[in-house]
Amino acid sequence: MSGLKILDFSTLLPGPLATMLMADLGAEVISVSAPGRPDLMNGYPPIIDELGISATSAWLGRNKKTICLNLKKPGAVAAVKKLVHEYDIVVEQFRPGAMKRLGLDYETLKKENPALIYCSITGYGQNGPLMMRADHDINYVALSGNMLMMDREDPQTLSIPNFHLADIAGGGYMATISIIAAVQYRERTRKGQYVDVSMFDGILPFACVEGAGVLASRKYPKGWENLTVSGIRNGPHYDVYETSDQKYISVGPLEPKFFANLCIALELPEWADGSILHQDPEHLRIVLRKKFKERTRAEWAEIFSKTEACVEPVYDVSEMCASEQVVARKMTPQVPIALDREKSIEQIGNPVKLSESPVEYRHTAYPSGYHTRDILGAIGFSNQEIQDISQ
């Protein structure tokens, strides 16, 4: 993505993740922060001493430059209008209408650069009855139908995902895909466009299997009977079981051949034909719970490493980072610290793998506003003007 220049006005996770992915791929990104408006991502410990920012911020700001602008000041607005002549992709993450009140909306900025690609990331998009509503990841997951799909045997107990489903998949990834599509369109037509990313829209496809059936039949499968039989929902052969050392193993042999391998490995060959799944699935669940309690997680992992049964250990994040698969895929690269390139820290890598143009990890984030004077000075602002509009 070399040659693409992005102004990133976003904070928290969705927008910064999208622009980081593109920066890893060669885009030149300037992150624009506001004085007196700290980014909550910088409050997550630990703090990188050399930078004075959190490890999370050091990751999200990877390969970017950073300036500080008080967008409520006319001079700062004028600076942005100058920058969009060169930085021709804008990413912002305010509520609908906020950038317009600042005089920095798409319609205004495209007058400065008709080829501008302008991406707005919001919870619910730029229209609809919820467009102005203040919500977070948990609310998008709830409204999208995905939370109820995580229920277990007790319908009164709902599972809350302890990860940022809407922020990352619905926001960061969808913004990246949408911007790349807009860039491709501009390459063909020389026309920019407005990109409306809704985090809520972005996670609706997670309900695709069930949603397709509901839309086709207008019926909601009570108790998920059809999906339980296939094992996709609450089937005993698509579940997590505790081991003797209070750790867990994941079991997912949906296909008959894999289920047969599971039964053989567990010394239950009489069930290898799969008939137990239809005759008495709850008895199977009871037996599996008892069986997996007989050995440690490591012992079961060793046993199932020798057969294809779709059985794998449940890792915590530290175990994931140290796993052979993650290392082999180079997903925890050493990244030079921005202010001391002799030192480096491990970070989560970029999942994009391209044979001819691989990602580069040039440096971690800089402290917020580090490049303000250099970048604004280069477009004609005096030191006094820079001081005024950055405070």
Rank of each mutant, 00 (worst) to 15 (best):
G125Y: 07
G125H: 09
G125W: 01
N127G: 06
N127M: 02
N127L: 01
G128S: 08
M132Q: 15
R133L: 14
A134S: 09
A134M: 03
A134W: 04
A134C: 04
D135I: 01
D135Y: 13
D135H: 11
H136G: 10
H136V: 12
H136E: 08
D137A: 06
D137C: 05
I138N: 04
I138S: 11
I138T: 09
N139V: 11
Y140F: 15
Y140P: 05
A142G: 09
A142V: 03
A142M: 03
L143Y: 13
L143V: 04
L143T: 04
L143A: 12
S144T: 08
S144A: 11
G145V: 03
N146E: 01
N146G: 04
M147R: 05
L148S: 10
L148F: 14
M149Q: 10
R152P: 01
R152Q: 10
E153W: 01
L158E: 02
L158Y: 04
L158R: 08
L158F: 06
S159F: 12
I160H: 06
I160R: 00
P161I: 02
P161C: 01
N162I: 09
N162E: 09
L165E: 00
L165R: 04
A166I: 01
A166C: 03
A169M: 07
G170S: 12
G170Y: 02
G170N: 10
G171F: 05
G171S: 02
G172Q: 11
Y173A: 04
I177S: 13
I177V: 15
I177C: 07
S178E: 13
S178V: 10
I180T: 06
I180V: 15
I180N: 11
A181E: 07
A181L: 14
A182I: 05
V183M: 10
V183W: 09
V183F: 04
Q184M: 11
Y185K: 14
Y185D: 13
Y185P: 00
R188T: 00
R188D: 00
T189L: 02
T189W: 05
T189V: 02
T189I: 05
R190Y: 02
K191F: 00
K191Y: 00
K191V: 01
K191N: 12
G192W: 03
G192Y: 03
Q193K: 09
Y194C: 05
V195D: 07
D196A: 06
D196E: 01
V197P: 05
S198M: 06
